[in-house]
Design a protein around this nucleic acid. Structure first.
Length: 526
RNA sequence: GGCGGGGUAGCUCAGGGGUUAGAGCAGUCGCUUCAUAAGCGACGUGUCGCCGGUUCAAUUCCGGCCCCCGCUACCA
């Protein structure tokens, strides 16, 4: 373990105001592909997720439901994890920021930043609404009125603690320049850079006064720590910051923070500055993924009502999609149809199209036909194939280069292109190969030749299942274990997909059969 | 308003100064029947946002305009 390279990644820490929706699920699924891919490739992976609970809104929501805030948080955390588990998200730790351990680590961190001189006491001046008992930003105001209470806000100032973010302006710009891959995709990087260059960075108020729920500021207990300052710390408290330096040093800096494109600024400017202030390294990469819309529209309250009327609101609730179809179908749809770096959309028709054409018709049916023909004609075992090296079935395809193309897409989180490449450049040609050689006919005239055709075609399923492992782990395993490929599934790597090699035994169908036929891996839907 | 990205087949998008502008899906027709009514083949369509300019030649370059999207700091 010690000599394996490490891979530490996180997803955004979710705000448990409501149940997880398809947008948050999209983020987790994309991150999960990366975690699974890195594990396959031999990395010592640590995948962190969690919920961001130390905010007034959470305690208000709990109060509305008549629940103790902690009990509410714990229940929401349970609900979130239930969805992530159902989607086979392979996280290693799930951090709740309301736990005492996180709070202690956060207090240690802010104390350190304060000791280093990056925090100073000042006063925050803003527009205050008595009804909301909170400050409003200029943007929120409607003609100078509180948008909720429709009455004028008043100028008010109160003491607070500022973090000297401005002190890191030049260092951040230099950092972005020296680490061009720090912010992905590039469009996000350009936004942040131009923002800082035009407006500069201001010091930020990192405390709130007079709130019962939250983490006390150790050097001034009248205050609690502003949620963002605390939430970001999850990324380090979850890997031992504050009480397990060895583990922290093993995994930090973070290799990729997966986040929504809306919070890139916090992760790309505030977060590195906070870490520098505490004497730690900044993360290696921040990936701001896109959003999921519903059939072209943003998911607003009115849109939701409309969908409910049409009975389509299930498509917004991950658990419903999983129940109706499967976690694998969910994963495949979003990974294939929504480009991870930019926005995508879900629509009922499209979901059915993608599932049927690629999973059922192309991949699933290819598996069925390559299992059935050997079973019917050879008792499931292809004679004289032991020790033989399969021949390529895709004309003109350099298998090693093809695998590297897919790998490049996976590493850059271009999951849709990775899947497109696998299906179009590999699976479809395999179906064409079968059509061209028609082993179901050939078997009547030349049984040996037909066996070789099948032997070759089956290799495509071995290759595809390996490449698909991070995307649809359960289905990929089902495909791989439908034949007696020698390498254990747990040990396959992408490089195994890049070569066609002989195996010691005759190729044999090992899939479970009912009346000589496999049950469809992806039964058509709709 | 400022900065950035984009407007290409019914849909999602790729492409890019030059012979007939591409892919997948959907559609139509044919072949096939090993297979999940799956597979394979063939076929169609596009004023490549609008208006000008540069050029032998522009959808591709330049300018203007229209439309869409993102960012524009303390809300997670």
């Amino acid at each position: 373990m010690a000599d394996r390279p490490k891979w530490f990644q996180t997803t955004a820490i979710d705000y448990p105001n409501s149940r997880p929706h398809i947008g948050t699920a999209f983020e987790k699924v994309g991150a999960d592909v990366q975690a699974r891919y890195r594990r396959m490739e031999g990395y010592d992976v640590f995948f962190l997720m969690g919920n961001d609970e130390n905010t007034v809104k959470v305690s208000k929501r709990a109060a509305e439901l008549g629940l103790d805030t902690q009990a509410y948080c714990d229940d929401m955390a349970r609900q979130f994890r239930e969805v992530w588990d159902a989607l086979d998200i392979s996280y290693d730790v799930f951090v709740q920021t309301s736990t005492e351990r996180h709070k202690e680590c956060a207090r240690a961190f802010i104390q350190k930043v304060n000791d280093a001189g990056y925090i100073y006491k000042g006063s925050y001046e803003g527009w205050y609404c008595d009804g909301c008992e909170s400050f409003k930003t200029e943007k929120e105001l409607e003609n100078g009125n509180c948008p909720i209470h429709k009455r004028p806000v008043t100028k008010r100032s109160e003491p607070c603690h500022f973090f000297k973010l401005s002190a890191f302006t030049d260092r951040l710009l230099k950092f972005y320049e020296e680490n061009p891959d720090f912010i992905q995709p590039e469009s996000r990087r350009n936004e942040i850079i131009s923002l800082i260059k035009t407006d500069g960075l201001y010091d930020v108020n990192i405390t709130r006064r007079g709130e019962a729920w939250g983490i006390r500021v150790p050097f001034d207990p009248e205050f609690t720590i502003w949620v963002w300052f605390d939430a970001l710390l999850t990324y380090i408290t979850g890997i031992g910051y504050g009480d397990d330096r060895a583990m922290f040093d093993r995994f930090w800096p973070c290799d990729t923070h997966f986040i929504g494109k809306d919070i890139t600024r916090f992760h790309c400017a505030l977060w590195p500055a906070m870490l520098w202030a505490a004497g730690e390294k900044p993360p290696t990469k921040v990936f701001g993924h896109g959003f999921v819309n519903f059939a072209g529209d943003k998911i607003s309250k009115s849109r939701l009502e409309e969908l409910k009327k049409k009975g389509l609101d299930y498509l917004l609730e991950p658990m419903e999609i999983i129940r109706k179809f499967s976690a694998e179908a969910f994963r495949y749809y979003f990974l294939r149809e929504c480009p991870y770096p930019s926005d995508g959309e879900i629509s009922p028709d499209r979901f059915i199209d993608v599932f049927n054409s690629e999973l059922a018709n192309n991949l699933g049916n290819l598996l069925s036909r390559t299992i059935t023909i050997p079973t019917k004609n050879y008792g499931g075992s292809l004679p004289d194939t032991a020790g033989k090296t399969p021949e390529p079935v895709v004309p003109g395809l350099d298998l090693a280069a093809f695998v590297e193309t897919v790998r490049g897409h996976v590493e850059a989180c271009r999951y849709n292109l990775a899947l497109q490449t696998i299906v179009q450049d590999f699976l479809t040609p395999t179906n064409q190969y079968l059509e061209a050689n028609a082993p179901w006919k050939l078997v009547k005239t030349d049984k040996d030749a037909a066996a070789r055709v099948l032997f070759n075609a089956v290799q495509s399923l071995r290759v595809a299942s390996i490449l698909l492992k991070p995307f649809i782990p359960r289905s990929a395993e089902a495909i791989y274990t439908s034949f007696n490929f020698p390498k254990p599934w747990a040990e396959v790597r992408y490089t195994d997909a890049a070569v066609l090699s002989a195996q010691p035994d005759d190729l044999r169908v090992t899939a479970e059969l009912v009346d000589g036929k496999p049950k469809p891996l992806f039964p058509r839907i709709g």
